[in-house]
């Protein structure tokens, strides 16, 4: 697929002739500098944007055939998002943030269990403003997981966190991937995170430059940056 942004007189080719297969339960890390096209790729895969050319398939469904509403339903049923800046609803407590996501899911998980899973069962009644960045990100992960998504898309999940907090968050993500079998896609410009993944994708100038498989992915605690 390709994605070209029309910026009036200039056309920006954000993604050029990219072909990618992601396996069920896989942990994939997409690496690349700013402007390499990794965010564009994630947005297309997450059903938030449409490619200019090409097709995207989720199992037997062709995403590129869906209208806006169809894409919304796709996100709602199959995709969990984790944002760089957490994007929690400030007016809802940690537990309520997780519960909110379950309100639109057909087969949700128990919000409290999800908070326990990310290690925040104790802080369920805190508002986002009362939580640290790492804690907020873990709530965001719990929220993403509560819908029982097949795919978890993470955009720079540790970008706003310090090293040790980042490690905790990555550990949670990897654990979710292994224990629940959720397919994990992380985009980051931090090469060290690639060591967690089953496969690492390097991007540059809108193309996949290199795909590398890790025979022995590391644990979060083992990596350093």
């Amino acid at each position: 697929m390709s994605k070209t942004y029309d910026m009036g007189e200039v056309q920006v080719r954000a993604l050029v002739d990219t072909d990618l297969d992601v396996g069920h339960g896989e942990a994939l890390v997409i690496l690349g500098p700013s402007g390499s096209g990794k965010s564009t790729l994630l947005n297309l895969l997450g059903g938030m944007d449409r490619p200019t050319e090409g097709k995207i398939w989720f199992r037997d469904d062709e995403l590129t055939q869906l209208d806006t509403r169809g894409l919304t339903l796709f996100r709602r049923r199959h995709v969990g998002f984790v944002f760089q800046f957490y994007n929690l609803i400030p007016s809802l407590t940690a537990l309520e943030n997780v519960a909110m996501a379950t309100e639109i899911a057909p087969n949700p998980r128990d919000p409290r269990e999800m908070l326990d899973l990310v290690g925040l069962g104790e802080r369920a009644d805190h508002f986002p403003a009362q939580l640290s960045g790492g804690e907020q990100q873990r709530v965001a992960i719990a929220r993403a997981l509560a819908k029982r998504p097949e795919v978890l898309l993470c955009d720079e999940p540790t970008g706003a966190l310090d090293y040790s907090t980042g490690v905790v968050v990555l550990d949670v993500l990897r654990g979710v991937n292994r224990q629940l079998g959720t397919t994990l896609l992380i985009i980051t410009h931090n090469a060290a995170i690639g060591e967690l993944a089953d496969r690492v994708l390097h991007m540059g100038s809108g193309r996949i430059v290199e795909i590398r498989s890790n025979e022995h992915p590391k644990e979060a605690a083992e990596i350093a940056w």
């Binding site: 997450g46 806006t68 919304t72 996100r75 709602r76 994007n87 929690l88 639109i104 929220r143 993403a144």
Partner: peptide
């Protein structure tokens, strides 16, 4: 805007 946008990404419809 950001809060509502996040919800849209999470799969809430425009109507919701």
């Amino acid at each position: 805007q950001r809060e509502l946008g996040s919800m849209r990404v999470l799969g809430f419809t425009t109507r919701e």
